[in-house]
């Protein structure tokens, strides 16, 4: 997926990478299901690019965003790329903080075992606390 992602993001180079040495806490909040709209895929493209900036990156999955992480996505018949394996590749980009809101899973009859990647399941209150500590919150 890595190579295809590079192509999808237009072969961005990192000449403009910030060299100031500032490390900020970035949280990407995913609240939308995949395929119905493009937000989840394009969010993932931002996440991958952010890895090149050596920032403190985390991802939060709330509401329908938890559907991005469910196992067993087969998209051949809708002729849309299945980008769910990319979540498993995030570790290779040193993006390891994936938080999933417990209430969102429960509302949808899902458990951690239904997800295709290791995540930290957190209560709404803990998610709120984590959000409040961020410097930049980009939501999709």
């Amino acid at each position: 997926m890595g190579e295809e992602m590079t192509e999808a993001t237009g072969g961005i180079d990192f000449e403009d990478e910030d060299a100031s040495g500032v490390i900020k806490k970035f949280m990407f909040v995913n609240r939308k299901a995949p395929y119905g709209t493009i937000y989840a895929l394009e969010a993932l493209e931002v996440v991958l690019i952010s890895a090149a900036f050596d920032q403190d990156v985390s991802l939060a999955f709330l509401d329908d965003g938890v559907y991005q992480l469910v196992k067993g996505q087969h998209t051949k018949a809708i002729d849309v790329k299945n980008f769910s394996p990319t979540y498993r590749a995030l570790e290779g980009y040193d993006i390891e903080k994936l938080y999933v809101e417990k209430e969102s899973l429960e509302q949808r009859g899902l458990t951690e075992a239904d997800l295709l990647v290791d995540v930290e399941v957190m209560s709404s209150a803990d998610i709120a606390k984590m959000m409040a500590e961020q410097d930049v919150v980009i939501s999709f």
Binding site: T9, G10, I12, D13, F14, D16, E17, D18, S20, V22, K24, F26, E45, V46, I49, S50, A52, F53, Q55, D135, V136, V137, I138, S139, F140
Partner: peptide
């Protein structure tokens, strides 16, 4: 027209980033 890195860079350099969508 430029890359997504410009968004991350803006987040790093600005005091606040506000998303409209």
């Amino acid at each position: 027209i430029s890359g997504l890195g410009q968004l991350v860079e803006a987040g790093i350099q600005a005091d606040r980033l506000v998303v409209f969508g």
